[in-house]
Design a protein around this nucleic acid. Sequence first.
DNA 1: GGGTCAACCAAGCAAGCGCTAGTGTAAACG
DNA 2: CGTTTACACTAGCGCTTGCTTGGTTGACCC
Lengths: 192, 192
Amino acid sequence: MNVMNDSPRRKELTRQAAQLFVQEGFDRTTVRMLAQEMGIKSGSLFHHFRDKQEILAAVIEAGTENALSLARAALDHCDSDPEARLHAMARAHLETLLTDRNAHVVALYEWRRLDPEARAHLSHLRDAYEALWETVIDEALAAGLIRGDRFLVSRFVMGALNWTVRWYDPDGERSPEDLARELVAMISRTGG
Amino acid sequence: MNVMNDSPRRKELTRQAAQLFVQEGFDRTTVRMLAQEMGIKSGSLFHHFRDKQEILAAVIEAGTENALSLARAALDHCDSDPEARLHAMARAHLETLLTDRNAHVVALYEWRRLDPEARAHLSHLRDAYEALWETVIDEALAAGLIRGDRFLVSRFVMGALNWTVRWYDPDGERSPEDLARELVAMISRTGG
DNA sequence: GGGTCAACCAAGCAAGCGCTAGTGTAAACG
DNA sequence: CGTTTACACTAGCGCTTGCTTGGTTGACCC
């Protein structure tokens, strides 16, 4: 058993694990499948991770951190117009989900598989991400761009975005930009 | 092995299986857990179902049929106003999802676990349900209640609704009616 | 050039998995 | 009455699972 550092090797293994977790789901992914994908034997896997749970936690941590930093960057690079900010958040979310998707998808869809301690340790990351959304929603509400209950609106928007994983075809005609524009148009009261 | 009829016994077992599939997920639910929940031994289970896959298929079939018939009933009992119809569909969907939730939740979240033949056999049910949604969305678009691409709008709306399973607390203050009203208000251009 | 250490491997254990085979039993049927 | 049918049981097979153990390799270090 090894120290649970963030060696580059471990980061790479985590990335590969994310891919399999998306394809097969956490439960169906065996340590032997993971090891084969990584080009090592199943026993060697436990040199890098204490157990299978820890692989999941590593994937989810990476995915949420990535989503969080991309969202922050997107907000930094757009002006203070509420509609532009809403659009930037939606686009960043979709691009995370649809291009560099793996880890973030796992974070969304395998969260339940985390054991309680890992969940407690990671929930602050998730909360930070959702807080970012609520800020942007609040601004849009204050500006009259949209209206409604801030809690419900943000949940509905996140739901619409997260569900895209189920039907969106990245090789199709529509870009993340298209989806983001359409979503913002759908819920905002401007234009016409 | 038995004929795969729709005996009342089998219907009841299917209902109990749905409960466990929601709680634990399909993969984590073992035939021994299912049997215990049903009050029989694991071997006896295979008198009613050919294999574990068939239990999943039965649950998903029941869930989708239920959702479909509830949606149809909701549409029958409201007038032809596009907003009323949209609201009725959203409410029916939420009530299916949040009260009689189990089977429908499984249909949504364990669809991937179906083997190809079961999926092919059940997809027409799912298509019928989604077609119902697209009809209502089309009417709302034609009436100018909402605007945008019919495909994207219906996917976004379904996403917002289906995601409620992740955060909604049925014992809380908000009713399915509340959520439906808020969702329709969020995407429609009337009022103000 | 002996010691250290991360990275890997071969082999396998204990537990749990889906599923089967063969049997018992009580009600329903001709 | 004897036969069939529906439903349940016991026992366990063959396999896969997550994980452990003990040992090997090769790069780096003073």
